[in-house]
Computed example of a mutant assay.
Amino acid sequence: MLPTKNKLFLTYYVLKQYSNKENPMNATEVAKKVQEVFELEKAPNRRTIYDHFEDLELISEVYEQTVSFRLVRTPNRKVYIESTISSGEAHLLSDAVATSRFIDLEQSRSLIQKLGIVVGQNLKNFFEPRLHFKATDKKEYNEQLFQNIDVLTEAIKKGKKVTLQYLKYDVNKQLVPSRPDENNGYKKIRPYYLIWQINKYYLMYYYDDSTSPRFMRVDKMRDVMTIDEAVGELKDIPNLSDYTRNQAYMFGGMPEYIRFRCKMYSIGQVIDFFGEDVTIKPIDEEYFQVEVYTSCESIKFWLMQYISSIDQIEPLKLAVEIEEMLEDGLRRNRVKQKETFL
């Protein structure tokens, strides 16, 4: 039995657990459920429950930016508690957690359980079969990932630089300093934006002496620390959201307008990847032109992936670079004699 001095919480708990859009509750039903669940000798009176409804409604309105629920009234004087996160949104987020390679098994279970609490569902049991496919061993980056996100988020809010050690995988699949000859991989950077892209979490940043943005994977960072130096105003990229969304691969680089001609049968791949806002101009029944605002570094490998249906690439420097890459790849992969593969 819980202490009963704060009866408002008891009303909230009952509404959270037992009410929804299909099953709203009136004051009498809530009072009886409170008495049943918390084993009270006497049910709260209806006037008290009505006061609780008003308090919960006021809390959800005044503190809508900080509480995760709203109280909804129906025409027949019943109410229910509705989460500010929908069931579909919670499932989508849980799915992302369950399939992420950079959130270990126990952390995944904990996060999914918390999302389930917010929406009043047992999401942990629902996703447990999928979680069985995750490895049970704990990686070093697993333990630091969320701490890295916290530190970087706070640094971005305050407009401060950070220092960190950046890592890479070696042939033994171990994380080692990315450039051990340069301060053992430690860097000082100006962080500006965190983004989840291509099933990984990235930080967009600048070096102190760089005029071009770059991206760095958060799961490969170690010893992230904020330092008391201002990052300065970001002037080169007017719209961070558009810039990061159009990054085909997270290599950074200054954005510019990239154009190319594409065969009509590939229109689905273009829209699926760049979104419905991408600029598309029909040329004829066979071709259309694509224009996207991104960097050459970011898009060149995407263009290579679909090169069998793409041509007339602009700007010229990008077209030349892709041509050289194709010629080099063809030279190294040319089949010199026919072989039989069993």
Rank of each mutant, 00 (worst) to 15 (best):
A96L: 14
K200H: 06
C262R: 08
S298V: 07
G329L: 11
S212W: 07
S60A: 02
K124V: 09
I117M: 10
L152W: 04
Q174P: 05
L316W: 08
I85D: 03
S60H: 01
K338V: 15
V30M: 02
P180A: 12
E327R: 12
F260W: 08
Y265A: 12
L8N: 04
L115C: 09
E140I: 09
R222P: 11
I189V: 14
A135Q: 09
K338N: 15
Y13R: 12
V292T: 07
Q197E: 04
L58H: 05
V79C: 11
Y206L: 14
V231Y: 03
F301P: 06
D150C: 12
I59R: 03
E229I: 05
K78D: 08
N23S: 10
A230V: 13
K188H: 04
R46P: 05
Q269N: 08
R245I: 15
R217I: 07
N6L: 07
P213W: 03
F301H: 11
I283E: 15
L56I: 07
R332M: 14
R190G: 03
K173P: 02
E314P: 01
H91V: 06
S60Y: 01
Q289F: 06
V67E: 00
D223M: 13
L240F: 05
F288L: 11
T4K: 08
S108H: 02
F38E: 07
Y265G: 08
G116W: 01
N122P: 10
A43C: 00
R47G: 05
F53H: 01
V79P: 02
H91E: 06
N246M: 12
E286N: 11
S83F: 03
I267E: 08
D137V: 09
W302A: 08
E82C: 05
K317N: 15
V72T: 07
Q174H: 12
Q113M: 07
E314C: 08
E291R: 09
N23K: 10
Y141M: 09
L111I: 13
I156S: 08
N26F: 00
V162S: 02
S110P: 03
K168C: 10
M25P: 00
G185T: 14
A96K: 10
S178E: 15
P180H: 09
S83E: 00
D208W: 07
L164S: 10
D228E: 11
V119H: 01
P315M: 05
A135D: 13
V151M: 09
V335H: 09
L240E: 04
I49H: 00
M225I: 14
N23G: 04
Y169A: 09
F260E: 14
L93C: 03
L316Q: 15
P44M: 06
C262S: 14
D209M: 11
G120I: 06
T211Y: 11
E64H: 03
Y287K: 13
D150G: 11
K114Y: 03
N142M: 06
I198W: 02
I198C: 02
S100R: 00
K42N: 08
L40H: 01
K281Y: 02
K187L: 15
